[in-house]
Nucleic acid binder design. Structure first.
Length: 261
DNA sequence: GACCAGGGTATAG
DNA sequence: CTATACCATGGT
């Protein structure tokens, strides 16, 4: 499968997911849930190699039916910073991730830098997930709810005070007191409320989960970097009324630009 | 060895 | 409603 106008290096660095790793020149291992694929960069396009039975999963994951550069070009208006960010981020894509993995990952993410987040997730995966292989490349699956249930997460995974957030979350998921598929059916505001009931989930983490895994493409997570942009470039108030449609992709461009420009 | 990290909670005012 | 202390640890 070929994804046109797709830059895997940028997606890997974009901070929306934490399990894409470079394994060779222009080659990346992409892991999601218990699945993996190999992504090869060929010019502006990316070729995805995966198991035949998983093709639909990756089609959805990469949102292959849409051209995100085209959506991004609709943000180009009269604002220099945003125009620069969109041009700088050509090839970025908004992925459609697994909601459980996404929620766990972003609870871990608070007050951590991206390398530290990745270390914690890999450590959890290699401990509680399963070892698998795709086209000769080994990987560990993301641990399922059942695989994490009842496990002590303190002290071993660099989680710090987040360990008890996760333990409580896993317990509620296991008992089906939290149903992310149900939240996926809700509108943005209702979903935001439901997610924020979870201990350790505030505005930012909830918006990440809504945007990256619950198909709410107008969610707009504001972290330290985004707040910095809003303060320095927009006098403390972002003009949301000018960018109503697909704000989440715009947020991705801004975050990426601010970090790597 | 300081400083910061894709924040959230609890408490005080 | 806003302001502030505190949180536990790793990366740079």
């Amino acid at each position: 499968m070929i994804i046109k106008n797709c830059n895997m290096k940028k997606i890997m660095e974009s901070g929306q997911c934490f399990r894409i790793n470079k394994i060779d020149t222009n080659k990346y291992l992409v892991i999601s849930k218990d699945l993996a694929c190999i992504a090869k960069q060929i010019g502006n396009d990316t070729e995805i190699k995966c198991n035949k039975k998983d093709e639909d999963y990756w089609l959805y994951y990469f949102d292959m039916m849409q051209d995100h550069d085209t959506i991004g070009s609709t943000f180009i208006k009269d604002d220099k910073y945003i125009n620069d960010a969109v041009n700088f981020g050509k090839g970025l894509r908004l992925l459609k991730q697994d909601n459980y993995e996404c929620l766990v990952s972003f609870i871990i993410s608070q007050r951590k830098n991206i390398p530290a987040i990745k270390t914690s997730i890999e450590s959890l995966s290699s401990t509680f997930g399963e070892k698998r292989e795709i086209f000769g490349v080994e990987y560990s699956t993301f641990p399922s709810i059942e695989q994490l249930y009842g496990k002590s997460l303190k002290d071993k995974f660099g989680l710090g005070y987040r360990a008890e957030y996760l333990e409580k979350l896993v317990e509620k998921l296991y008992r089906k007191e939290i149903d992310l598929e149900k939240i996926k059916q809700m509108n943005y505001n209702k979903g935001l409320m439901e997610l924020k009931k979870i201990k350790g989930v505030g505005d930012k983490v909830a918006n990440c989960v809504l945007l990256y895994s619950l198909n709410k493409e107008n969610a707009f997570p504001i972290d330290i970097w985004m707040q910095r942009i809003i303060d320095n470039e927009f006098n403390g108030e972002f003009p949301f009324e000018k960018y109503k449609h697909y704000k989440g992709l715009l947020q991705l461009y801004m975050f990426y630009y601010e970090r790597y420009k």
